[in-house]
Simulated scan of single mutants.
Amino acid sequence: MFAIVRTGGKQYRVAAGDKIVVEKIAGDAGSTVSLGDVLFAGSGGETQDVSGLTVSAEIIAQAKGEKVIVFKKRRRHNYRRRNGHRQQHTILRITAIGDHKAENEARAEAPAAVEA
């Protein structure tokens, strides 16, 4: 199953178990967040109703992106300005879409069969 969610002004296609990098979301590493702005959901060729559907994700890390150099210059006026910027972002692991969980997480929650 997959879903298209909107966060930070951008749209992402996610499935359970995926890792994505999004604009900064408040929270510490290891905490769980819920992405409620689901635009589309489906499985194979079928679509699913998205009313009330949420995507659960775990914050892996808070990080910074690559440095972008901002350089301004005006010719023949001895004007030069150099500035840098590093965008803050959050790395997420999608744990579940609605009630569909990631396979490795579903296996961990299922009780192990005891052999006699």
Rank of each mutant, 00 (worst) to 15 (best):
V114R: 14
I59L: 05
H89K: 15
A108N: 08
G44C: 06
A29N: 05
A29S: 08
I20C: 07
Q62P: 07
K19W: 00
N78I: 06
A63Y: 00
T7C: 07
Y12G: 02
V14H: 05
R80A: 08
A57F: 10
K101H: 13
H89R: 15
G36S: 14
R81L: 07
G30F: 06
Q87S: 14
H100F: 11
E105S: 02
V68K: 15
E103Q: 12
A16T: 04
V5P: 00
A15Y: 00
I60C: 03
I97L: 10
I91V: 15
R86E: 03
K67Q: 10
I20S: 02
G98N: 13
A41T: 10
F40M: 15
K72N: 08
D99F: 06
P111T: 12
Q87A: 14
F40W: 12
I91N: 06
V38I: 10
D28S: 12
V22N: 04
A29E: 04
V21R: 10
R81M: 05
A112V: 12
A57D: 09
L92A: 11
D18V: 11
A110L: 12
Q88G: 07
V22F: 06
E105Y: 12
V38Q: 04
H100P: 00
V55C: 07
I97R: 12
E66C: 02
A113L: 10
H89N: 10
E66I: 08
A57R: 13
G9M: 03
H77D: 08
T54M: 06
P111G: 10
V50L: 03
A113Y: 07
A61M: 10
A61Y: 07
A15C: 04
K19T: 15
T95Q: 13
V50Q: 05
F2P: 01
I59T: 10
T54L: 05
A96S: 15
L92H: 13
K19L: 01
T95S: 13
R93P: 03
G98Q: 12
V68D: 00
R76N: 14
K64Q: 10
I60N: 05
K73S: 00
G9N: 11
R82G: 03
T47D: 00
I20K: 06
K10C: 01
S31M: 06
V55N: 07
E66N: 14
K101P: 04
S34C: 03
Q48Y: 07
R86W: 06
K67D: 02
G36T: 15
I20D: 01
S34P: 01
K72G: 00
F71M: 09
G8W: 03
G30Y: 08
N78R: 15
D18P: 05
R82S: 08
A96N: 13
D18M: 06
G52T: 13
A63L: 09
R81V: 11
G8C: 02
F40T: 11
E103W: 08
T54W: 01
H100D: 11
R80W: 01
D18Y: 04
A57H: 14
R93C: 03
I94L: 08
R93F: 02
R76G: 03
D28C: 04
Q48S: 13
G44S: 09
S34Y: 12
I4T: 09
I20L: 06
